[in-house]
Simulated assay, not measured.
Amino acid sequence: MQVDLNSDMGEGFGPYRLCDDEAMMDVVTSANIACGFHAGDPDTMVRMVRLARERGVDVGAHPGLPDRQGFGRRELPFGPDELRQQMLYQLGALTAIARAEGVTVSHVSFHAAMGNMVNRDPALAAAMMQAIRTVDADLVVFGTADSVIERAAIEAGLKTLTLFLADRAYDAKGALVPRGQPGALVKDEASVRARVRRFLLDGTVTAIDGTVIPMRARSILVHSDTPGSLDLARTVRSEIEAAGGTVTPVSKLLR
């Protein structure tokens, strides 16, 4: 059993950091790097790319809305074409920085509000996927199973990697419980460990109301801004290995 372990990373800017990115890079196999809009900056991006290269971690673009104060979690009234250009701008920036460091960008993972907007609009999702394909047809798109994003990527001829969010609660329909609601974040070690073990052994997860739902995924995500994220990522990795699995970067997982 091979499982990717990914995290949204490089989400500080200037001297400010959300987590210990260096230590996190020793745990994960794929890094979704903020591209300068909701977080990140050129120096942070190149630092993350170099860390990933040194540790054999895959590099992915993590584009979000241009909203540092809201950390890209507030939906803003951009039109479809504006969102497309914002995504391309960020993907292009990381691609150039990575190429200068001898690194290939392997995947794209939308951040927060941008991802939510794309994921409920099939036309926007299709436009985004065609744009991604134009940049690099080998890019892998991260998304949840049976989502608008996954379907649009497949229709565009792109590879996809489905995600299980270890630190976020799901409702009975398989949707994420909105941030701000009680129980939306899962951050204690025992709960994360139990959720990951169930996912690995049964391919299911217990929803916030106790319903057991199927979870089709090949990668586990831990958000770097979740309190205690580094320890949670280590917990997830230890559970994968305890179940006889191997943590594997997306580029090798989907060969």
Rank of each mutant, 00 (worst) to 15 (best):
D4Q: 11
N6Q: 15
S7C: 15
D8L: 01
G10M: 01
F13D: 06
G14W: 00
D20S: 06
E22G: 12
M24V: 06
D26P: 06
S30W: 03
N32R: 09
I33E: 00
A34W: 01
G36F: 00
A39Y: 00
A39W: 00
D41H: 00
V46A: 01
R47Q: 01
V49C: 06
V49A: 06
D58K: 04
V59H: 03
P63C: 07
P63Q: 09
L65H: 01
D67Y: 00
Q69H: 09
Q69F: 10
R74C: 05
E75L: 02
P77E: 00
P80W: 04
Q86K: 10
M87V: 13
A93W: 01
A98L: 08
E101T: 01
G102F: 02
S106K: 13
H107G: 09
V108C: 09
G115A: 07
M117G: 01
N119Y: 04
A125Q: 07
A126L: 11
M128K: 06
M128F: 04
Q130C: 08
A131Q: 06
D136N: 07
D136W: 08
A137C: 11
A137T: 09
E155P: 14
L161C: 15
K173Y: 15
G174L: 10
G180S: 12
Q181E: 14
G183Q: 12
K187N: 15
E189S: 05
S191H: 09
A194Q: 12
V196I: 11
V196G: 10
D202I: 05
T204V: 04
V205C: 15
D209A: 03
I213W: 07
M215D: 03
R216Y: 10
A217H: 08
A217T: 05
R218K: 11
V222F: 08
V236L: 09
R237K: 11
S238R: 11
E239G: 04
E241Q: 13
G244F: 06
V247K: 03
T248Q: 05
V250E: 07
V250N: 07
K252S: 10
L253R: 03
L254D: 10
